[in-house]
Amino acid sequence: MTATATARAQTSAPATSALRQRLGRAGTYVILIVYSLIAVFPVALILINSFKDKREVFSSPYSLPNPINMSGYETVFGRANVIRYFGNSLAVTLTTIILVLLFGAMAAYALSEYRFFGNRFLAIYFALGIMIPVRLGTVSLIRLMKTLNLHGTLGALILVYAAAGLPISIFILHSFMHDVPRELKDAARVDGASEYRILFQLVMPLVRPALATVAVFHMIPVWNDLWWPLVLASGESVRTITLGISWFVGQFKTDWSALLASLSLAMMPVLILYALFSRQLIRGLSEGAVKL
């Protein structure tokens, strides 16, 4: 149907319009390609120069490395606890997402399924958290974490990320769960299923795309966050990769080839993962965005 519509539009258009359309099409590609280059150029330049030695970085920044020099990478691997930092980031990000999905889904289900005293109040209470950044409560959060003896642990990070992530998750899941047909749930109830079973075995599988969207929503910001690791958990053993990079970039500021190597090392896993999953990621973001 779209095809016929296009065809009709084209045949009915006069010749000048066709030319203009072709020019417009060319312009479209020019703009997209130019902006793509702007997006890629800095990243590519850093990657390329990370394989040069110090002098070459300065003398010929635009040339390809010749020969390939790995001294920067050797320096970085000799110093930094990269593997541990990665483990910490992975643990924090995954646990946060699991907590957000589980608790978010439970709360969203309760709010969308049952009419109870305080339902509306709770919905508004949670919604308020969508727009207010938890960062503004830093001073109190540090005090709180100290009181709870959680300061300096990965647990502290997870709790803050999960708490801050709940509002938007509840919001997105709420609207998806609302769309699950009532007949399905009622049929399960008639069969004697408990409310817990209905949520976990019937509704959750049905809103899987929404769960994926929520996961995608939190993955990047949590992984990339600098503030909370900086102020809540900057100790060596609990350092996340993002904070870790900022520390060893600081250490290598007088050695540009090591500096470029550490930046490249930090980028590569993210870029590779992104290249593999960009489709899912972008779809998830768009779906979440529509619900906003």
């Binding site: 958290g129 938890v134 709790l159 709940l166």
Partner: peptide
Amino acid sequence: LYSMFMAFPLLD
């Protein structure tokens, strides 16, 4: 979770 680690710190 939300009250303790988000609402409370912000209000406090």
